[in-house]
Amino acid sequence: MFKEIAVQVKNSILFVAVFTVLCGLLYPVGMTLVGQLVFPKQAAGSMIVVGGKTVGSELIGQPFDDPKYFWSRPSATSPFAYNASNSSGSNLGPTNPAFISGIKANVDAARKANPDMAAAPVPMDLVTASASGLDPHISPAAAEYQAARVAKARHLDPAKVEAFIAQNTQGRWLGFIGDPGVNVVKLNLALDELK
């Protein structure tokens, strides 16, 4: 029996070693080489480079609170919002009093910043924290909600702002899978380039 166990332990060690080389080194290193060759931009994180400077990633959101920018969703990452080295949701439960008062503060801030929309309901995604804390998108409704404010702050024709929103909206895949989202970083960068 002990001899049997000794043989099996030896087999186990060899097996873990062989598969560590195959699945833990050759596989990821091979995929990295091929990936960087075929899709270099995506493999490196889809970075946005403006004037030789990396200003963010197409896939990672950033925080905004200037009236001239579209605002992203609230983020629960610490120690600051949209910390892309520490992704996190709020994990607050639906009846937690601290959660409800936090949302109330977000709703009040959104209404105050967008007086033109006083009569409209506040889009839920604009006042709730995303799962990752890095959500690059807001819903088209949340972009519409802010469009008048941004147009005023930038002295732009509202129709032009609408066109920018449409340009930076990622639709549903095949027209029906997923939900449409407006990429906030790309939209704000496009508006900045206008000057």
Partner: peptide, 28 residues
């Protein structure tokens, strides 16, 4: 409890649903 604050309704888009802890691109 949130719908009361946003004056939202039981609508059909993600902007009406429980979006806390969800990502826009996946929706409800």
């Amino acid at each position: 409890l949130l719908n009361k604050l946003t004056m939202g309704t039981h609508g059909e888009t993600l902007a009406d649903g429980n979006m806390e802890g969800k990502e826009v691109r996946f929706g409800i």
